[in-house]
Design a protein around this nucleic acid. Sequence first.
DNA 1: TATTGTAGAATTGTCGACAATCTGACAATC
DNA 2: GATTGTCAGATTGTCGACAATTCTACAATA
Lengths: 244, 244
Amino acid sequence: MPKPARILPMPDPSSRFEKVNKESTRDKVYRSLRNAILSGQLHCGERVKEIPLAQELGVSRAILREAMQQLIHDGLLESNSYRGARVIELRPEQIDEIIEARILLEGRAVRLATERIQNSQREELQAFERLLNKEKDPLKAGQLDLLLHQRIWRISGQAMIEKLLLQLTSPLFAMSLLMRSAETRGHEQMPALPRGTHKRLVDAICFGTPAKAAQELEAHLTENWTAIRRRVAEFVAREEAGKL
Amino acid sequence: MPKPARILPMPDPSSRFEKVNKESTRDKVYRSLRNAILSGQLHCGERVKEIPLAQELGVSRAILREAMQQLIHDGLLESNSYRGARVIELRPEQIDEIIEARILLEGRAVRLATERIQNSQREELQAFERLLNKEKDPLKAGQLDLLLHQRIWRISGQAMIEKLLLQLTSPLFAMSLLMRSAETRGHEQMPALPRGTHKRLVDAICFGTPAKAAQELEAHLTENWTAIRRRVAEFVAREEAGKL
DNA sequence: TATTGTAGAATTGTCGACAATCTGACAATC
DNA sequence: GATTGTCAGATTGTCGACAATTCTACAATA
């Protein structure tokens, strides 16, 4: 593997020691900014100015720029020369595109995971699912959901698909959280994420067939994202109306 | 769309004017390095030192580092802190992983392309295919092949899938070219790329059904890459033997 | 009044220098 | 002789300053 870098550090059973990778300042800044976007603290369309941000983070602009470069590549920021960077604004059609690609890739991943899963991983997935089911805070639930999916990708053993999925979900996750934060800023209530599909997906991976698992995944993703997609569409429409 | 950036500039019929994006030094450096890797001038596993390279390119290290950051994200370079960056070395299993993901994504792309293709695009694809068929130089043929595929992705209208495929093919393309350049450095002849499948793929997209096109794509990719995969395996085995 | 030209401020692009870390060779120790 | 400590040389990580470009507001012009 060409260094499964920047993929979440999960225990690697093939070595008796954990890796001792000191995290560079750039990577810390990268994670910090990524979290800020994914938790809605840097909101949708917001301009990102280098000097104030570098000061706030306590690093030089050079480092910040390198981190921003990665975020641009992730698709979380967009920039024009001499005109600054902004947090992306997703349009509803893009959500469809992303979900479609995600169903393709993650469908393959869950099929493989169902074939390759070990007993210890079965227990881990189920424990995760129980944890997620008990979580009331929708923000934390969203983060747990992402982590659960990442475990599944890792179990599939396909590093390349894992990498692509990780990239694919960044903007999606941002969008879902932005919607939630928009809601708390004075719009009506966000419908709660449907939770039941998680258990069915995990059960299918642990004890079902690959085909069954892929089917559950598609149902799970479709159900989860239909609501958010509609919400985004309404949100965008309202914004447009406000401007005119 | 959040700026289809860094994707090859193709004409955009929705505007009467071409975009007037001045290319930043960073992007020039990025393209230059990318070409150097993809054409085998920076070869497999080679260490990339910042100071000499920056001098050779005539830019400062800060700029070079930002460009390298993107290449690391592309998966063409890998770096460890304070230990420098190297051009990636692919292992045969990775080629399988990449091809598998590519068949998933590009399969969807050609289905969509078959449904959405316009007459002018049909002519363009066929012209491209004829050009590719006449090209004798395997290096140029490889580049034309990549360009042809990129046109197809663009026709599919799925920006996200296009972006993922572009990323996916970088290391693949590098690998195929590295194999070719290794051959010219004293190994036996590389078997020529099979060409016939291109015409069948293009014809299927232009005049066939989505299912037929997807089937042709899978055949095309499998046929093209089986040879290269085997060659990589032999190459790696020889390297290992040489070290022991 | 609507359009165009023109400073100045604000912001990003670029650079060279210094600090932190790694590498490899050689000496010290057992 | 093999292992461990230590020191230079090389390379990367980080920073602050300067140059280039864009933006904003206001004046000039018709």
